[in-house]
């Protein structure tokens, strides 16, 4: 069960979000940008944040929720400390990225899209990262690891543990 977000403890973040919304309020169709910003601030989009946005941007909560769940980059559940994204673009796939993903899943004992129990890692399969010359590729917190083989995985993960 996911705990609700403590609105009072996160007051500063809400103020930051409000300031952002105020700065773009005169443009049309600002919901997507607002969700991007909110995710950057909170790390994910809990229902409390969605309610806040619905109120501020003046769109029904159902629509905010609809947009937040339509796009894969928005998440309504919290993520682990480290985000691992294995590229499943075609170039990586034909060079064996599925085997890399399977190995990670085995090492971390989670399925794709899940977060480890200790909240350290979230494992995701991503769309083409665009560095096809390095295939197969994965990204951990913005660092790209290329020309991967399943057997290199434990060593790479060790760098992020503890």
């Amino acid at each position: 069960m996911i705990k609700g977000l403590d609105v009072r403890a996160n007051e500063r973040q809400f103020i930051e979000l409000k300031e952002y919304i105020d700065s773009i309020r005169q443009s049309q169709g600002i919901l997507m940008q607002t969700l991007h910003k909110a995710q950057e601030i909170f790390g994910y989009l809990p229902i409390e944040v969605q309610k806040f946005i619905a109120h501020e941007v003046d769109v029904p909560l159902a629509e905010v929720y609809g947009v937040a769940t339509f796009y894969t980059q928005f998440s309504i559940t919290p993520k682990g400390k480290h985000k691992i994204g294995v590229c499943l673009g075609t170039a990586c796939y034909v060079k064996g990225s599925q085997l890399v993903l399977d190995k990670l899943s085995k090492e971390l004992k989670v399925s794709v899209g899940e977060t480890t129990e200790d909240n350290e890692f979230t494992l995701e399969a991503t769309r083409c990262l665009g560095c096809c010359g390095l295939a197969p590729v994965m990204m951990i917190d913005g660092d790209v690891y290329g020309k991967l083989e399943p057997k290199k995985i434990p060593e790479i993960l060790a760098k992020y543990k503890d």
């Binding site: 169709g29 997507m32 769109v59 947009v67 796009y71 894969t72 980059q73 928005f74």
Partner: peptide
């Protein structure tokens, strides 16, 4: 500039416009 958020269908022009308007693509 308007940013997408990871939806392949938004490359289709009518979906893309929906997305710029801040809706589901």
């Amino acid at each position: 500039i308007r940013l997408g958020a990871g939806a392949f269908v938004c490359g289709e022009e009518t979906a893309l416009m929906q997305s710029i308007e801040g809706k589901r693509g």
